[in-house]
């Protein structure tokens, strides 16, 4: 499922909304999450999962092709941890 397919599904569930409004709604949701992560904030969606940012220290890596040492700069990476309900749902456990 892509973002546009997601928008179509949400639009189908909400026939009273204009398609372009559904588009704005879905975009607003992901934009809010992106902006939060950009600030280093955590996004916690109970039952679904949590997005956070992890810090990775600089390290000496290797170019796998040549074997030469390369300095990998420190960086911040987005991270997602699946929520319990979603994890159970993936394994067909029915929520009590």
């Amino acid at each position: 499922m892509t973002k546009s397919e997601l928008i179509l599904r949400i639009a189908a569930l909400n026939p009273h909304l204009y398609h372009r409004d559904v588009e704005r709604i879905v975009t607003a949701i992901f934009d809010t999450m992106t902006e939060a992560l950009e600030r280093g904030d955590r996004v916690e969606l109970r039952g679904f999962g949590a997005f956070s940012v992890k810090y990775r220290e600089s390290r000496v890596g290797r170019n796998p092709r040549t074997g030469s040492n390369v300095v990998v700069e420190e960086k911040y990476v987005p991270f997602f941890k699946t929520g319990k309900d979603l994890r159970d749902r993936l394994n067909n456990f029915v929520k009590k």
Partner: peptide, 8 residues
């Protein structure tokens, strides 16, 4: 900055 938790 950077210590807020965004929720639903």
């Amino acid at each position: 900055m950077a210590n807020e938790t965004i929720t639903r």
